[in-house]
């Protein structure tokens, strides 16, 4: 058994977006090698939770820690965010796009997580878009862009993957491949937090179900500002 040193801990997360409280006092902890699947109705705050973990939405209260990670880096700097937007520049070639992220994003490895450091061309080959390497990314289809965006996660090792609807715009075969990649990441000691509507067959899964709170529990009126 691997030693469960890496641990993503969220305590009493509370966030407000646009003056509206999205969720309140949300806590969980996720240890190395497991995936947390966030479920819940549309608009309940799954994406907000992932973006909060990514450090993109400011916390109104609470803390996020990565235990066993690099102490001089914030948790979000040890995480990959794979969201709805592909962050692909159409004017650059596929390889240029990928090389940029490889050089720009800081790698984060620690004792318990070494991760994969594959060469960009190898990753593109694995994901089945190797033939497009020297084409401008403008010519890629939606699915191919998605895979290019995914390849970013494989060229820079980072222990935490935050994946918002990772299977969108992917066909069945690519979805299977994605699941394989995600399982490999878990097996190598990574952590995954993902929001999804579809069932994901992952090795070690925990679920976090978000549901609407009783309106009576909301902040009292006179505290509103």
């Amino acid at each position: 058994m691997r030693s469960s040193l890496l641990k993503l801990i969220a305590e009493n997360l509370t966030i407000d977006r646009g003056g509206r409280r999205v969720f309140q006092d949300l806590s969980f902890s996720l240890s190395q090698g497991s995936a947390l699947v966030v479920t819940g109705a549309n608009g309940i705050g799954k994406s907000s939770l992932l973006r909060t973990l990514a450090g993109l939405v400011p916390l109104a209260a609470g803390t996020i820690r990565l235990e066993g990670g690099e102490t001089d880096r914030l948790p979000q700097e040890q995480a990959h965010y794979f969201g709805h937007q592909d962050a692909v520049k159409p004017a650059l070639s596929v390889l240029e796009n990928l090389r940029f992220w490889q050089n720009f994003a800081a790698a984060s490895v620690c004792e318990d997580f070494t991760g994969s450091t594959l060469s960009p061309s190898l990753v593109l080959e694995t994901l089945g878009i190797g033939h497009t390497a020297h084409l401008p990314a403008a010519y890629l289809s939606a699915g191919q862009r998605r895979r290019l965006s995914l390849s970013r996660l494989l060229v820079t090792p980072r222990p935490v993957w935050l994946m918002d609807e990772p299977t969108s715009a992917l066909d069945k075969t690519s979805e299977q491949q994605l699941l394989g990649i995600m399982n490999d990441h878990l097996a190598s000691g990574g952590l995954i937090v993902t929001a999804t509507h579809t069932e994901l067959v992952l090795d070690r899964v925990e679920t976090l179900h978000l549901q609407a709170a009783d309106p009576a529990e909301q902040a009292p009126e006179e505290a509103l500002l």
Binding site: G55, L56, Y81, A87, A105, A106
Partner: peptide, 13 residues
């Protein structure tokens, strides 16, 4: 617009 800025802020630079 294409999400690059989000990733830049997470890049650890």
């Amino acid at each position: 617009e294409d999400g690059t800025l989000d990733l830049m802020m997470m890049a650890g630079r």
